[in-house]
Design a protein around this nucleic acid. Structure first.
Length: 283
DNA sequence: CGGTCGATTCTTGCGAAACT
DNA sequence: AGTTTCGCAAGAATCGACCG
């Protein structure tokens, strides 16, 4: 093993491989021995850093005495996740909430967001998306349309879901940015890069924000056409705890192209995303 | 009204003090 | 001595105000 990961992902992998609980000393030694994580200064990972990271991710790690273990069902999940085996569900109205069976309070119906029956082809929803806050999910019609190495990852996961996002003000405006390039949607830049397009050379020269690169107009049209034909969208409109819900869903389902907060984020996507500003800043 | 771009928020990494 | 916790810095991700 010689790949480098973020520290908590490296810890997760060590615990998964061990198949038992370990002390912070054992974890630190294993991470250093396998070269799973490289500090900026080249020094080995101290136990203090392992401890700090374990504490920061209570959803991923259990601590009993000085023994650390993985939370069951957290982090990396097998290719055949339970949700791919769920029986078909009936379409529900996308109002985003259902009564909690225990408390009786209204909670977010995340199952409806990922229900097959609520996905629609991107090219068909332009006038259907509501002007309300909420969360949205994007998936591919067929994983075969994804280039390598993303297709292999999607097939291995047996999952077509590629992105979950939030709209604090308006799903229509946000999805406009993400799918039809009416703004600097993060997803639009990611999918453009994933399917092989590159930004205009020098498009960010002299600008303060080096992440908001743009594609050439003709490339933008090609990306939008690809999106309309190959992606499906589902959304839930609600106005309470939108961000908390998005964070929870990303963590739970690990979409292929989400980076932030995604325990299953792809290193390949980070590499692609990092390359683009470099290109667009050069003159 | 659409698109640009900067403000804000979040994540990651680390050092050091406090604690066991 | 080893471990835990706190707090800060830097960079990345995201959203929406505002300008043309």
């Amino acid at each position: 093993m010689s790949e480098t990961l973020t520290l908590h992902v490296a810890i997760e992998r060590i615990l998964a491989d061990a198949g038992r609980s370990l002390t912070t000393r054992e974890i630190a030694d294993a991470v250093n021995a396998h070269g799973l994580y490289a500090r900026a200064d080249g020094q080995p990972v101290p136990t203090s850093q392992v401890s700090a990271r374990l504490r920061k991710y209570p959803a991923l790690f259990n601590k009993v005495g000085n023994q650390m273990s993985l939370v069951v069902n957290a982090g990396l999940r097998p290719a055949t996740s339970p949700r791919t085996q769920q029986p078909p569900q009936t379409r529900r109205p996308n109002n985003g909430t259902i009564p909690d069976p225990v408390s009786g309070n209204m909670s977010i119906d995340s199952a409806a967001l990922l229900n097959d029956l609520n996905y629609r082809l991107a090219g068909d929803v332009v006038n259907l998306v509501p002007e309300q806050p909420g969360v949205y999910a994007i998936r591919v019609v067929d994983v075969a349309v994804l280039p390598e190495p993303f297709r292999v990852h999607a097939e291995r996961r047996n999952d077509r879901l590629i992105y979950i996002g939030e709209a604090k003000i308006s799903l229509r405006k946000r999805l406009g940015q993400e799918l039809w390039a009416t703004g600097h949607g993060t997803f639009f830049r990611s999918i453009g890069a994933v399917i092989g397009h590159r930004p205009m050379r020098g498009s960010l020269a002299g600008m303060a924000n080096k992440h908001n690169y743009t594609f050439a107009p003709a490339v933008e049209v090609a990306i939008i056409r690809w999106i309309n034909l190959n992606l499906e969208v589902s959304w839930l409109a609600f106005d309470r705890e939108v961000h908390e819900t998005e964070v929870r869903l990303i963590h739970e389902f690990g979409p292929l192209l989400n980076l932030s907060g995604n325990p299953r984020k792809l290193p390949e996507l980070s590499v692609v995303r990092e390359e683009l500003p470099t290109i667009s800043c050069s003159g």
